[in-house]
Amino acid sequence: MNDHHAGYEFFEHTADIGIRARGATLAELLVQLAKGLTELIAEDSRLEPRRNHPISVRADGPDALALAWLQELLFWFSTERFLPVEYALEEVTETSLRGTVRGDTFDPSRHVQGREVKAITRHVLQVERRGGAWHGQVIVDI
């Protein structure tokens, strides 16, 4: 991770963009991946935690959990223009996640337009515990 993006960075794919993140805990990793996704959509827009979105996701394992989590955030953006700012994840296991996300409503007249993320792909999706930290990577379709 470089200095500019504590906890996450982007990596290259010919047509799209990958997010690689690290966290001391799985919850922290998931937040870092979400921050990467938000930056892809809205760059460095000034976003305020204006409203709450409760979240509850279940999956078969850490990979699928990260996928489901990011898919849920992308769905909120696609349908409500919601972008996360603060994360209160109360319960995170390797197969489930529950909590509240606080965020803003994207407004093209106030915010910076980044990229339209079509989907979170499974192509090189990987979430694992390595050397005492959680590492994750995912490619998003642009």
């Binding site: 290259e12 794919h13 010919t14 047509a15 963009i17 642009i142």
Partner: peptide, 8 residues
């Protein structure tokens, strides 16, 4: 067909 990544 793309030949260069977006970041590049």
């Amino acid at each position: 067909g793309r030949v260069m990544s977006r970041t590049e």
